[in-house]
């Protein structure tokens, strides 16, 4: 028996134009968005776990109205129910405040065994929320899982590092983050798309979670973006014409960049 809460995030479509709002935070309203691709691996892994045993998958998102699309996509893929924390006060929250909202929402969901997340969001890409969340909930964290096995209430993961591959396990309630190596996410079937219409989605405000507006949003953020500028366009590369000394010039270039 494993009830799993999967965190999903609605992110700007990376193939579209991404912009910032006047307070220098990511514009999440005026652009096309979608379920963060890396979260699809978490949804898939959670579904595999409950399909192999039993239990339910609840997807949880924090975000503007359009974030309901990310919840719906997860429900189409097969999750059972959704929770959407929607509150204007949350806009501009940093990772610390986001993890507070998520932790309170998870405590309110109450009936869960595993909190599962992707490896990072494809917009913020900080990868810190799972650890912050584990800290707030007082749970063990198994992060960056590229393989996951369950025996009773123990979960064992493989964590691929640069220097070593670790095997880590924990028992009881826990937070698990998974990488894009762990599985091949499924596509929403037509039946899934139709069934998602009837699945329950609850919408909560921060007041429902006992959070004050002063604890979240831009004002509560520990960091502030002062300015930004678009990445400069790519410049043409340097072309070396081989006049018998091509190899030497190539080695010189690599040496100048400290590659050799």
């Amino acid at each position: 028996m494993a009830n799993i809460v999967v965190l999903v995030k609605y992110v700007p479509d990376a193939t579209g134009d991404r912009t910032f709002t006047s307070d220098n935070t990511v514009d999440r309203v005026g652009v096309d968005g979608l379920l963060s691709e890396l979260d699809e691996y978490a949804v898939e892994e959670a579904l595999k776990v409950v399909e192999a045993g039993d239990g339910e998958v609840t997807v949880l998102t924090v975000g503007p109205e359009q974030a309901a699309d990310a919840v719906r996509k997860a429900l189409q893929i097969g999750a059972h129910k959704g929770v959407h924390v929607l509150d204007d006060a949350i806009a501009g929250s940093d990772a610390a405040a986001t993890s507070l909202v998520l932790a309170k929402a998870i405590e309110k969901i109450a009936d869960y065994d595993i909190v599962m997340t992707g490896l990072a969001s494809t917009d913020g890409a900080m990868s810190v929320v799972p650890a912050m969340l584990a800290e707030r909930l007082g749970l063990p964290q198994l992060t960056f899982a590229s393989e996951l096995t369950i025996e009773g209430d123990t979960i064992r993961i493989r964590r691929d590092g640069d220097a070593a591959t670790e095997t880590i396990e924990a028992s009881g309630k826990m937070v698990v983050s998974v990488t894009d190596q762990i599985n091949e996410p499924r596509y929403p079937s037509f039946k899934g798309i139709m069934a998602a219409k009837k699945k329950p989605v609850e919408t909560w405000s921060i007041a429902d979670l006992g959070i004050e507006a002063s604890q979240v949003g831009t004002a509560a953020a520990w960091t502030k973006v002062l300015s930004f500028e678009p990445r400069p366009p790519r410049t043409a590369g340097e072309i070396v014409t081989d006049e018998g000394d091509g190899g030497t010039k190539l080695a010189e270039y690599l040496a100048s960049k400290k590659f050799v």
Partner: peptide
């Protein structure tokens, strides 16, 4: 729903 079906198949 039909639009979402399109999108899923296109992907």
């Amino acid at each position: 729903e039909r639009g979402e079906l399109r999108q899923a198949v296109a992907e």
